[in-house]
Amino acid sequence: MRSEQEAVQAVERYADTVRRVCALHLKNYADTEDIFQTVFLKYVLSTTVFESQEHEKAWFIRVTVNACRDLLKSFFRSRTVSLDALPELPAAMPTDHREVLEAVLSLPEKYRDVVYLHYYETYTAPQISRILGKNVNTVYTLLTRSKQLLREKLEGCADE
């Protein structure tokens, strides 16, 4: 089991990353809080020895993505939470930033992680394939397609 000091340091380093991945998949704060705490508990109980902070960060991203997917697939949740609920976005955001975020969140779920990891976290396709456990060609395909979709959405917003 990791120490309290390690837990505090991990929260400080990776809280925002975990929060953002939750935002890509979850649509309410209650679920976000649930997954957020679960991920850090898994970290505290994990015996994984990390080679570097990059390795550790990749671990947090992968665990968070998997935890979100598990929650979304759960039988109980699908019958208690509306699947059409809109995600909660930060209140004060510049308009163009909000449009980008809304565009990403409106993509089919399979595109959101690769878009976030590539355009914001600046991971390469091979790195993303390792984090998400996907074939690297699949990642390239998803990135290419997501770019088209985002362009269509954002150009459509620009036209309005």
């Binding site: 309290e4 837990a7 505090v8 929260v11 400080e12 809280a15 925002d16 975990v18 929060r19 953002r20 935002a23 976000t32 809080e33 957020f36 705490q37 850090f40 508990l41 505290v44 930060p90 004060a92 955001m93 510049p94 163009d96 930033h97 909000r98 980008v100 975020l101 990403v104 976030y116 355009y119 914001y120």
Partner: peptide, 22 residues
């Protein structure tokens, strides 16, 4: 991109409650 995602931050209360939970 930076602007869009940087706006998403873990709330202080979320971090505090998580540490208490742990």
């Amino acid at each position: 991109w930076n602007g869009a995602f940087s706006a998403i931050r873990a709330e202080a209360s979320l971090k505090e409650e998580t540490l208490a939970y742990l």
